[in-house]
Design a binder for these strands. Structure first.
Lengths: 212, 212
DNA sequence: ACCTGAACACCGTTCAAGT
DNA sequence: ACCTGAACACCGTTCAAGT
């Protein structure tokens, strides 16, 4: 009875265990629903009104937490970058000190995330550097990719990688992965198992990046 | 007066030089306006009603030529694949018989198209293999990429490229380009000139693809 | 054969007003 | 501080009807 949804006219200080008058946790609920919607239909099919309906508030309620649709997308991308950064960091740690092993570990970790959450990763990259993106978002992207940069720099110091701006070298390597994932997401790899292809790509990357 | 827009009650058999009653060329006009809209704001911001307004017909008129929005996007992608195919073919012919030169030529041609028409290229890949895509579209994509496949196969025959399924080898190379273009489109290359980076990527690709 | 106009069910965004 | 309801200007899609 107390937990029912009829507003019984009693005052409700700030917190109640029952169904929400003020919902109490709307921001988090919208983000969770948003991530589901993202994976279900991509960023361009995400509807704020639909999220509000799912969560059980009026269509104008999200505005308190996200001024517009883009703000919600930015928040989703930000959280994605933060989780990716942690994943890449863990991959480097698990791989030990060898450059080839690190590159393989990073590649596998990234491809794993990108194939399990393709729409989120697409959103992350689309949002990161676009005109008028929030500085916080760009910074989160930089932080997330820092482990890969550091691995390249270490590889150069150990003589396993061609010299030059680590960022440029890393981008060359990263581009190949990014492209592979894009092709996989678009179904262009058909029957070829992604993991097999991935190891092949990484092997050729290592060869291509070795000093001559 | 005759060319004015007021319908003067006279009958108009089928063709008139004045302003259109039936427009006469609506399909082409929509495609042209669609390509402009695509480059201006990406596929997800393309509005059928806006195209109809630009072209000067009612919002329901496009339906005769394109049953829905996706049909217009498919037609744009199809024309993009056809033009890309011709461009890649020309690049191979211009590059002569050497594998390295062909790969560089193909890469430059593709990157040129992809940077000048990023939204169109994104649409092409997004549409090519998606669930329920028209077979004609998939076939056009295959045809467009055939010159690159052939170049790889020739390279293998000449001993310049690792053996194996040419499609798989081509995909590895193509993935790197695709990724590079994606990064460039997203502004992640910052100040680095794309052409310089491109030549570097191709050089490393050649190295990575060489038989050991 | 090709196009119009009105209608329907959706959007994102805004703003006064409620508790 | 947080949310609602009504309103506005847009969509894509459908369908009868016009020429």
């Amino acid at each position: 009875m107390l937990a029912a949804s009829t507003p019984t006219g009693t005052l409700h200080p700030v917190t109640t265990a029952a169904r929400p008058y003020h919902h109490g946790n709307l921001r988090e609920a919208l983000l969770r629903a948003g991530e589901r919607a993202l994976e279900a239909g991509g960023a361009e099919n995400l509807s704020l009104r639909e999220l509000a309906r799912e969560v059980g508030v009026s269509h104008a309620a999200p505005r308190r937490h996200f001024p517009d649709r883009q703000a919600l997308l930015d928040a989703l991308a930000l959280s994605g970058w933060e989780r990716l950064g942690a994943t890449l960091e863990a991959a480097v740690l698990a791989a030990g000190d060898d450059f080839d092993a690190r590159l393989l570990g990073l590649a596998r970790a990234y491809v794993d995330v990108a194939t399990r959450h393709p729409a989120l990763v697409a959103l992350m990259f689309a949002t990161k550097h676009q005109a008028g993106a929030s500085p916080a978002l760009a910074a989160a992207g930089e932080r997330a990719l820092a482990p890969a940069l550091a691995a390249v720099a270490d590889g150069q110091a150990a003589g396993a990688v061609v010299p030059g701006d680590p960022e440029q070298v890393a981008i060359v390597a990263f581009a190949a992965l990014q492209g592979l994932v894009a092709l996989a997401s678009n179904g262009m790899l058909d029957d070829t198992p992604l993991t097999a292809m991935l190891d092949d790509v990484v092997e050729r990357l290592v060869l291509g990046l070795r000093p001559r």
